[in-house]
Simulated scan of single mutants.
Amino acid sequence: MANLVITAASVLAGADASGSTGHAGEAITAGQAVYLSSTTKKWMLGDSNSATAEARQAKGIALNNAALDQPINVHRAGDLTLGAVLTPGVAYYLSDTPGAICPVADVGSGEYVCLLGLAKSMTVLAVDIQFPNVAL
Rank of each mutant, 00 (worst) to 15 (best):
T40R: 14
T40K: 13
K41V: 01
K41F: 04
K41I: 03
K42S: 15
W43D: 05
W43V: 00
W43N: 02
M44G: 00
M44C: 10
M44D: 01
M44P: 00
G46T: 10
S48F: 10
S48P: 09
N49W: 10
A51Y: 04
A51K: 03
T52A: 09
T52I: 15
A53W: 11
E54C: 04
A55C: 04
R56K: 12
R56I: 03
A58H: 04
A58D: 11
K59T: 05
K59Y: 11
K59S: 15
K59L: 13
G60W: 14
I61M: 04
A62G: 11
A62C: 12
L63S: 03
N64F: 13
N64S: 11
N65F: 05
N65H: 07
N65A: 14
N65D: 15
N65S: 15
N65M: 02
A66K: 05
A66W: 14
A67N: 13
L68Q: 11
D69I: 04
D69P: 06
Q70V: 02
Q70E: 15
Q70K: 12
P71W: 01
P71L: 03
I72Y: 14
I72C: 11
V74F: 15
H75W: 08
H75E: 05
H75I: 04
H75V: 04
R76G: 10
R76Q: 12
R76P: 01
A77E: 11
A77T: 04
A77C: 07
G78A: 06
G78E: 08
L82E: 01
L82P: 01
L82F: 12
G83D: 11
G83Y: 07
G83A: 08
A84S: 12
A84Q: 07
V85D: 10
V85F: 15
L86T: 03
L86H: 13
T87A: 15
T87I: 11
P88R: 06
G89Q: 06
G89F: 12
V90F: 06
V90E: 12
A91V: 02
A91Q: 13
A91S: 08
Y93W: 05
Y93D: 15
L94N: 10
L94T: 06
L94C: 13
S95P: 15
S95M: 08
S95I: 09
D96H: 08
D96V: 02
D96T: 03
T97A: 15
T97Y: 02
P98Q: 01
P98G: 02
G99P: 01
G99H: 06
G99T: 00
A100F: 00
A100S: 13
I101C: 09
I101F: 08
I101V: 09
I101R: 09
I101W: 10
C102L: 07
C102H: 08
V104C: 13
V104H: 12
V104D: 10
D106V: 01
D106A: 14
D106P: 00
V107Q: 13
V107C: 10
V107W: 00
S109A: 13
S109M: 08
S109W: 12
G110Y: 12
G110P: 09
G110E: 01
E111Q: 15
E111R: 02
E111C: 08
V113W: 14
C114A: 00
C114N: 01
L115Y: 06
L115R: 10
L115H: 00
L116F: 07
L116I: 04
G117M: 03
L118I: 05
L118K: 11
L118E: 03
A119M: 00
K120M: 03
K120L: 12
K120H: 08
S121D: 08
S121I: 00
